[in-house]
């Protein structure tokens, strides 16, 4: 479904991505982790073309993302994305956030879009908050609306860019619960996160990145059984000891 082949990217002289190769198959959940500055957020943003790569190839559902001929707007409408800082549209109610793309991009009727939005708000446990504006919602609630907004496009895959990093600890689980449910329902997901509990629970594979390189790409069990690279083990020991 998603395949990244030898992707490299530079910001001026600084190489953010160095010959990255990995893939996400249909129905698979892949967690990408690594220290900050390792390029994991950049990598995931390249998957839907929010960032471009300078070398290599990224394919999504048969289309080459970094090909000028590819219609990125259509491609993006097929992949949902959830951001670290939620990025709900603050001038619209939660429900309208979920409706907008359905009407403007998928050309659904107002009634159809509204009905679907209500279903999704129920799915993320926020039915009673549908009419509120983002500023009236907690971070965890906002992030769940953002997930609903992504789901409203009936995506073939969902990308998560550190979805819980900006949240207070007590709200993280509400968001992770929604993500676990999605994973168990067979959604294809690529998740940049430090939530190793989530990775152990639902991820099929874990990709570990450092300094722009994919250092490790292993099935979840194997990754956590201390067979991997030294660098990955160091990273794990740092974030798992507390």
């Amino acid at each position: 479904m998603i395949s990244i082949s030898n992707a490299s990217k530079w910001y001026g002289d600084f190489q953010v991505l160095n010959d990255c190769t990995t893939h996400v198959s249909k129905g698979e959940v892949v967690v990408v982790c690594g220290p900050s500055g390792s390029g994991k957020s950049t990598l995931i943003k390249c998957v839907n073309g929010l960032e471009s790569i300078d070398k290599g190839k990224i394919m999504v559902d048969g289309d080459v993302v970094n090909d000028k001929k590819t219609n990125l707007n259509i491609l993006r409408s097929k992949i949902g994305m959830v951001f670290q800082s939620f990025e709900l549209f603050p001038h619209m109610s939660a429900l309208d956030n979920v409706i907008l793309g359905q009407i403007k991009v998928l050309k659904r009727s107002e009634d159809e879009a509204r009905a679907r939005a209500h279903d999704l708000m129920a799915q993320v446990g926020l039915s009673e908050h549908a009419g509120k504006y983002p500023a009236q919602l907690s971070g965890g609630q906002q992030q769940r609306v953002a997930i609903a907004r992504g789901l409203a496009m009936d995506p073939i895959a969902l990308l998560f860019d550190e979805p819980t990093s900006a949240l207070d600890p007590e709200m993280i689980n509400d968001v992770l619960d929604v993500m676990v449910n999605l994973a168990q329902d067979g959604m294809t997901m690529m998740v940049v996160t430090h939530e190793m509990g989530f990775a152990q629970k639902v991820a099929h594979r874990v990709v570990f990145m450092d300094e722009g390189c994919i250092v490790e790409d292993a099935p979840t069990d194997q990754f956590f059984q201390a067979q991997g690279s030294e660098r990955a083990q160091q990273f794990l020991s740092k974030i798992l000891t507390h």
Partner: peptide
Amino acid sequence: VRSGQIAAGRAIGLTYPQTMRYI
């Protein structure tokens, strides 16, 4: 307007003019 807002608009498949117009 935060640049993340443009990214969020583009991420759901809105075109650049639509992102400007609605977001």
